[in-house]
């Protein structure tokens, strides 16, 4: 890991940001893996069980982060939320990649009217406010894990499309592509062999930054009552429930899920910024 980050400089700001980001994201990954296991083993209470607990209890030794209006343990629900968020976001981004990258490559490579129509469509989608777009889709698709992922993915398809399309259009004009064509290489071969490898380098940075963004939007959907089914503990919908209790001074149901979300987005953003300056050779930020 150290070596992987070394090009950005061991002591440079971007390197430090990337290291902090990696640490935070790995930590969340561990929590996501371990929480269901510990709940299963009985070391942590079930995030959906609350009948035996006092309701709206402030933090105590038994419930470190207090309980919500149904007596559920806020701490365990917050921990469980990280696994849910990471799953949905990963699914959404994989979907966006699988749709956006080939479409962008094809559009850039083919050019002509197909390209123009696709670009116009994607630009239109890109202009729309991100949250508005996924709110409309989530409203139509209803609650559910794949549905939420689909509503998120639509936001990111245009982004991958744009980046990959512009790069493909650029690479297409290179001499080695012409050489391959004159040697009799078919379009599919060229797309796979030459374009994909050139284009794919720009994806990781975008992916990390989009993951940060997607966590926020998923939270927003949950907060608006549109995200996941109620049986799945999720930060956004927990915060929506906390909102109604807020005026009575119940702060613990609001603080912990939001804090968890904030730190995860912070970690992903650090990682993305660090990666970005590493990919661009640190030219923008260290010169």
């Amino acid at each position: 890991m150290r070596q992987w980050l070394a090009p950005s400089g061991g002591r440079s700001l971007s390197g430090r940001l990337a290291r902090w980001g990696t640490l935070i994201v790995v930590l969340y990954g561990l929590v996501a893996l371990l929480t269901p296991l510990l709940v299963h083993l009985g070391a942590l209470p079930d995030p959906n069980a609350g009948l035996e607990n006092p309701i709206n209890a402030s933090p105590t030794w038994a419930h470190w982060c207090g309980t919500d209006r149904l007596g559920r343990d806020v701490g365990v629900r917050t921990l469980s939320g990280s696994g849910v968020a990471l799953q949905v976001v990963a699914l959404a981004l994989v979907l966006a990649l699988v749709i956006g990258v080939p479409l962008g490559m094809l559009s850039g490579y083919l050019g002509g009217p197909v390209d123009r129509v696709l670009v116009l469509l994607m630009d239109t989608l890109y202009t729309l406010p991100v949250l508005l777009l996924s709110v409309v889709l989530a409203f139509l698709l209803g609650r559910g894990l794949p549905n939420a992922a689909a509503a998120l993915c639509v936001v990111y398809v245009p982004q991958y499309f744009r980046v990959v399309r512009n790069q493909s259009a650029q690479v297409k004009a290179e001499l080695y592509i012409e050489a391959a064509q004159s040697l009799g290489a078919g379009p599919l071969w060229i797309l796979r062999r030459y374009l994909l490898r050139n284009v794919i380098t720009s994806v990781p940075v975008l992916l990390t930054l989009n993951a940060a963004d997607a966590v926020l939007i998923l939270g927003g959907l949950g907060f608006l009552g549109l995200g996941l089914p109620e049986s799945i503990p999720e930060w956004g919908s927990d915060l929506q429930q906390a909102l109604t209790a807020l005026p009575t001074g119940i702060w613990w149901t609001a603080l912990f899920p939001g804090l968890a979300m904030f730190v995860l987005v912070l970690g992903l953003s650090f990682l993305g910024e660090g990666l970005e300056s590493w990919v661009s050779g640190g030219e923008e930020l260290t010169r």
């Binding site: 940060a212 939270g219 927003g220 956004g236 899920p257 804090l259 979300m261 904030f262 987005v265």
Partner: peptide, 10 residues
């Protein structure tokens, strides 16, 4: 940027 808007508001 990383602040969830609704949480910041709360």
């Amino acid at each position: 940027y990383a602040l969830p808007p609704f949480w910041a508001a709360m």
